[in-house]
Computed example of a mutant assay.
Amino acid sequence: MTDLLLLHTSPVHVPVFDALRDRDHPGAVLRHLVAPELLDRARTAGSESVIPALRGLLTEAGAGAGSGPGAVLVTCSTIGAAAESLAPALGVPVLRVDRPMAAAAVRAGRRIAVLAALESTLAPTRELLAEEAGERPVSIRTHLVAGAWERFEAGDTAGYLARVAEAAGSVTGADVIVLAQASMAGAADLVTGPVPVLSSPAPGLAAGLAMRSAP
């Protein structure tokens, strides 16, 4: 099988996905591309503004070339939809990491609570959940975790995850909780409340590897 290219907007995701590969998919070949400027641009000018830069980066990385990656997995929820729109032009599958999580969420129940540390993530996640729900009636409530992103940017991972876990533990009236950003995944293990908590890295990586083209 050919390799999987992972596009990140933060370097913190690289060891997370490598660890998941080692645990769940030994032998799989991952290539990492880190472009934090894409998130900065999307936050100031909107997610569609990054499409030209995205296409350039992925083309330069070999997406669409015969010897390039078999698929692309984009781990940033803010730019996920923009990246997926490039799949026809690139000629390889492009998957946003949170799509499998969203599909699982709408199967889990009608009342979905979305937690994000970054406001620019909320609308794309809501739209993705509505898309995955299709004709199923769902109620989507979004929550911005105050102060969490500042801790993430400061490198305080433990404090960041603790804030997210605290927010998740206070959610009521939901059938399932969605952690909208891949960086939140570690908080799922810290939540002690009764509502199931879904995160995106593990199911996203499994789906990305399954999409790889045959050599």
Rank of each mutant, 00 (worst) to 15 (best):
V138P: 07
P203F: 03
A81S: 12
V138E: 06
A19D: 13
G147P: 02
A45E: 15
E48F: 04
G56K: 00
A19N: 10
R141Y: 09
R126G: 05
P124Q: 13
S67K: 12
A65N: 03
G91D: 06
H13Y: 08
A35G: 06
A105T: 07
L198R: 12
L128H: 03
L86S: 00
L4I: 02
R151M: 01
S170E: 15
E166N: 09
D175H: 07
G64K: 15
A188D: 05
W149A: 02
P15D: 11
A180I: 06
H25T: 09
V72G: 11
S199W: 12
H143D: 04
G159D: 02
G155S: 01
R111L: 05
Y160N: 10
V164W: 01
R136C: 04
T192R: 14
A148C: 00
T121N: 15
A61T: 00
V29D: 09
S200Q: 05
H32I: 00
I112S: 01
V50T: 02
H8R: 14
A103K: 08
E132F: 11
A82I: 02
M1K: 15
V74G: 10
S85C: 03
H13E: 12
V74W: 14
P36C: 04
V72K: 14
P52N: 13
T9W: 15
P15G: 06
V50F: 02
V178F: 11
P88T: 04
E132N: 12
L198W: 11
A116Y: 13
A113I: 12
D175N: 06
L90I: 06
V164Q: 03
G147R: 00
G109Y: 11
V34T: 15
G159L: 02
T9V: 13
D24G: 13
A108Y: 12
G193N: 09
A82P: 03
C76Y: 02
D175E: 14
P201Y: 08
T2M: 13
T121G: 08
A53P: 01
G204M: 07
V72W: 14
G134K: 12
T59H: 13
D98R: 08
E166G: 12
P194H: 15
I177H: 11
L118V: 13
T125G: 09
A180H: 06
W149D: 02
P215T: 02
G134P: 12
D175T: 10
C76Q: 03
A117D: 11
A108P: 04
L129G: 00
I177Q: 08
A63V: 00
L205F: 10
S120E: 13
G204R: 01
A130H: 15
P203W: 01
G159T: 00
G91I: 07
P93S: 01
D22L: 08
L5A: 00
A154C: 07
L39C: 05
R212N: 03
A206Y: 08
E37P: 06
S49M: 07
R41W: 03
A105F: 14
A45G: 07
P137K: 11
A105L: 11
G62N: 02
G80M: 10
A108F: 14
R110N: 03
A188N: 02
Y160K: 10
R55I: 00
P194S: 11
R41D: 14
G64Q: 12
A146G: 06
A28S: 12
A102Q: 10
S67M: 05
V114S: 05
